[in-house]
Design a protein around this nucleic acid. Structure first.
Lengths: 145, 145
DNA sequence: ATTTACTATACTAAATTAGTATACATTTTT
DNA sequence: AAAAATGTATACTAATTTAGTATAGTAAAT
C-alpha cells in the first residue's frame, strides 16, 4: 500500500526543477547530488517524465533538464499514475477478469470508491501548490511560478 | 500501491462470516472452499482477525469461526490497517526518521493528506454496508444484520 | 480416547522493486 | 572534425516483500 521510490523520486525531481525554473537546464549530476538519487536510476525516471511531456531536455555541454509545463499544471495524480504499475488499490477494479469472483464481489465497488477518492485528492495538488505551501501559506496562484 | 492479498482475503472472510451470522460457527474448511483460500493461509489470516477482536472461535467438533462484532461496526479502514504492514502511502509520513530529507520535504504533507482522505473513506464503509449495497440499495440499518 | 478443530512458527517460492552495467547517440565548443 | 559533456535505451542483478507451505503441536467435545 505504499508508493514506489520512482513515484517519490519523480515528485522530488519535479520540485527541484520547479524551484530552479529561471536557471536554465539542470544537469543530471546536479539533481543526483541534491536529491541523493543514483545517476543511472535518475536518468530512467527522467526519461519517463520526458515521455509524459512533463520534462524536456537540452543536449550537449550546458545541457540538462527543465520543466515542459507550468508547475501549476503538474498534478500529483498524474505523477503517481505514471510511475505506479497498478494504480488501483486492487487489480480487479480496472481488470475484473483478474478475479474469478469479481462479478458477485461485494467489496469491489468499495475498493473502487476508495481509489477514486484518493486520486481526486492527488489530482487537486500541483507542484506549484507544494512549493507555495511551504510555510503553510496557500499561495497557489502566485505569479512568480 | 495495491492492497495485499491478506487484506483482500480478510475482507472476504468477514463478509462470508457476516452472511452466515445465524448459522453458528463456520469451519475453516468451509471458508477455504467458498473463498478459494488455502487452508493454512486462511488460518493465519483468521488468527490476525481473532487477535484484533473482530472474529472469535469455538474449538472442538462443530467448532469454527464467527464474528465477534456487529458487521455494522467492522470498517474497511480497520481491516486495511490490520493487514498492511505500512499503512501510509509513504513511510516518512509516520516515521520521519526514515528519510533524511523529511524535515524540509515539500511533498510530505501532501502524501499525508492523501493518506488521510483514503482512510477517512475506508473508515466510513462497514461490512454491513458492503452486504447491503448488493443490488445498489442502501439498507445499512437493516435489523437482520 | 479419538476425532475434529484451532494455534504457532519456521521455511520456501514467486513476484516485485530498486538499482547497476553496458553500450550507444546527440550536440556544442574548440 | 574531434572532443567533451550530456542524454537514451535496454538488459541484468540484487534486495525486499508477498504469498503460500510445512511441521509440530494444543484444546475441546463426543
Amino acid at each position: 500500500m505504499k508508493l514506489s521510490t520512482k513515484t517519490r523520486y519523480g515528485t522530488r525531481i519535479l520540485i527541484e526543477l520547479a524551484l530552479q525554473l529561471n536557471q536554465g537546464a539542470i544537469q543530471v549530476s546536479k539533481i543526483s547530488s541534491n536529491q541523493k538519487i543514483p545517476v543511472k536510476y535518475l536518468e530512467q525516471i527522467l526519461r519517463t517524465l520526458k515521455k509524459a511531456g512533463i520534462v524536456k531536455s537540452v543536449r550537449g555541454p550546458k545541457g540538462g533538464h527543465l520543466l515542459a509545463k507550468d508547475p501549476g499544471e503538474i498534478y500529483l495524480g498524474q505523477i503517481v499514475r505514471l510511475f505506479e504499475g497498478q494504480t488501483d488499490l486492487v487489480a480487479c477494479v480496472s481488470s475484473p477478469e483478474k478475479c474469478e469472483m469479481a462479478a458477485d464481489c461485494l467489496v469491489r465497488d468499495a475498493w473502487h470508491d476508495a481509489t477514486s477518492v484518493l486520486y481526486e485528492k492527488l489530482d487537486g495538488i500541483s507542484i506549484a501548490d507544494l512549493i507555495n505551501n511551504n510555510g503553510s501559506n496557500n499561495l497557489a496562484g502566485c505569479a512568480s511560478l
